[in-house]
Design a protein around this nucleic acid. Structure first.
Lengths: 126, 126
DNA sequence: TTCGTTGCAAACATTTTGCAGTTTC
DNA sequence: GAAACTGCAAAATGTTTGCAACGAA
């Protein structure tokens, strides 16, 4: 990871992600911060999301309708994606799943670093 | 699903997907079939993949480096994506996972139709 | 004859990038 | 002052779509 300076906008993006559980897209973040930072640009949001991701500060949790969705909650959990409205909800799974993941037979894999579990269906408002 | 005619190219796309376990992208399919069908167009591949998917004949199993990857093997299993080369491997999980999926606590979901489990890591050739 | 299918190219939408100016340290 | 960061706009990318011609039933 390359050394990085402090950046007020990066900080704001990160804090916004920490403060919401809506698993926002870059665009959503951009629109949310645009009022407070009128000179914010979408490119900056994208660049900082990538940077925060490579940091391990945030994660891309799903791609919904072509848009990457991010989460700053880094504790192990998974997600539910509503096929109706695209909402992304947190799903907490029993610890057994982590064990399970270790035991999964994966022929041809040298190392397994992570996994991503996504449920699909309809949310209660759709 | 709208009524559909026989189409030689759709058939070829489907059979190609059945015959490989490489979980190809639209582009890969296009290049593979281009020799046999010199007038094949990429749009046709995309259209038919969507159609086969809405059919339930194939599935999109992952997005790797921005490309949708497809599978015609419809029995329940999941996938391993190599972070080095983008290879997609089949992963067969014990039935317990299906049970587990039923039990996952999903607040805010009305119905859960499916789930998708993807492992990430390095394959044995990377 | 009807309507599904196709090639082609243009359109699209999201994301990335080059550059010149600004900020951080 | 060096290197990181940013806005802007252009470019790149993967995918979708409109249309006129073609093919299947």
């Amino acid at each position: 990871m390359r050394t990085q300076n402090y950046s007020r906008k990066r900080q704001a993006i990160y804090e916004l992600l920490l403060s919401t559980d809506s698993h926002p897209s870059a665009e959503w973040i951009y629109n949310s911060l645009k009022q407070r930072y009128p000179d914010l640009s979408l490119g900056t949001v994208y660049r900082n999301l990538k940077l925060l991701e490579s940091n391990g500060s945030v994660k891309s949790v799903a791609v919904v309708e072509g848009c990457e969705r991010y989460d700053a909650r880094m504790s192990p959990h998974s997600h539910f994606v509503c096929r109706g409205c695209g909402r992304v909800l947190d799903v907490f799974f029993p610890e057994e799943l982590d064990d399970f993941a270790q035991r999964a037979m994966i022929n041809g894999a040298k190392s397994v670093e992570s996994f991503n579990l996504i449920f699909y269906g309809k949310c209660s408002e759709c």
